[in-house]
């Protein structure tokens, strides 16, 4: 969930950690203090490219209370559509990009008796902001991170400032997950971040061992997308593409249309818009069941379209 007011970030430094990993440090391009962040937060970065802009989310890896610098680590994905390729090849120190303010749905649990972090590869990034906070609060932590054998050194270096005896870097594919999960005391919370396959495997193993959903937390960067569709603006006749990783509200805002919004989470009613044609896919908490089945209203901040074309009264 983004907050609509992107911030301009200037690249202060780029550091190659390995052939496919780069750490990038940003400062505010307008000289203002950066919006406050918190452990586990991420920003959505807009990276310009030849075939259009790409918007990817990256966890902030630095000290969460730092208001002058944001740091991210980006993996160059071999078959990427362009976002990470652009980051690795085209960006230079001094470039200015726009980013969403930090948001987070991946948060440390205050009531946890123990925090168990399991991750893989680039999934280490949100953990890098968790670890200093967990240590500062002297909390029970256990961490298992699975990386390619040729990257063990890189990741050990990344974890060096946060090193603790209950932390292990494993070379190779994630195996022995059940052994890690078995025998964890009551009140342990599990945080998972890494390649989709690893996250699914760890989650499945936890469920097999009887862990409840409320104790399993995964970083999905608040994935809120869906099938792309076309929105037609009745008053002007304009048609806009709503991309799979973009909300209807974001598409309207990107096109310069002044749609009111407040919570951007489907709860407050502020962005209520009339639907004139097409079938909305409701994902909000505001409309009543009757209003939803009538199909003449939509909350663009979270809802999408079942029909390929949706006509709204804007």
């Amino acid at each position: 969930m983004t907050l609509g007011r992107d911030i301009p970030l200037r690249i202060r430094a780029i550091e190659a950690l390995s052939p496919s990993l780069k750490r990038i440090a940003f400062v505010a391009a307008d000289g203002n203090p950066l919006p406050g962040s918190r452990p586990g937060a991420h920003i959505a970065l807009t990276v310009p490219g030849i075939d259009g802009a790409h918007r990817n989310s990256y966890s902030l890896v630095g000290a969460h209370q730092d208001r002058t610098t944001y740091e991210v680590i980006v993996r160059r994905v071999a078959q990427s559509r362009g976002g990470s390729a652009q980051v690795h090849e085209a960006l230079r120190v001094g470039d200015v990009l726009s980013a969403s303010p930090p948001t987070s749905q991946f948060n440390l649990q205050n009531k946890a008796k123990k925090h168990l972090l399991i991750g893989g590869g680039i999934g280490i990034t949100p953990f890098l902001s968790f670890l200093p906070v967990l240590r500062e609060r002297n909390l029970a932590v256990e961490m298992h991170h699975f990386v390619r054998p040729d990257e063990v050194t890189v990741f050990e270096r990344l974890l060096l400032p946060h090193r603790m005896p209950t932390m292990r870097i494993h070379a190779g594919r994630a195996v022995g997950i059940e052994d890690i999960l078995k025998g964890q005391p009551l009140g342990t919370h599990l945080y998972i971040c890494g390649p989709v396959g690893l996250m699914q495997d760890v989650e499945a193993a936890a469920y097999r061992l009887g862990w409840p959903t409320s104790n399993i937390h995964q970083e999905s960067f608040g994935a809120s997308g869906g099938r792309p569709f076309i929105v037609e603006l009745a008053r002007s006749g304009r048609k806009l593409q709503v991309g799979e990783n973009q909300s209807l509200l974001e598409a309207l805002e990107a096109a310069g249309l002044p749609v009111r919004s407040m919570c951007r989470g489907g709860a407050c009613g502020e962005c209520l818009t009339q639907v004139l044609a097409g079938e909305p896919e409701h994902r909000d908490h505001f409309l009543t069941a009757a209003e939803k089945s009538n199909g003449d209203r939509i909350m663009p901040c979270v809802s999408r379209s079942i029909s390929p074309l949706l006509t709204i009264d804007i």
Partner: peptide, 15 residues
């Protein structure tokens, strides 16, 4: 209260 709770769960820092 149902709506208020959904709204509050989504409040972000600095807002």
């Amino acid at each position: 209260f149902d709506r208020a709770l959904q709204f509050l769960l989504r409040i972000q820092h600095d807002h």
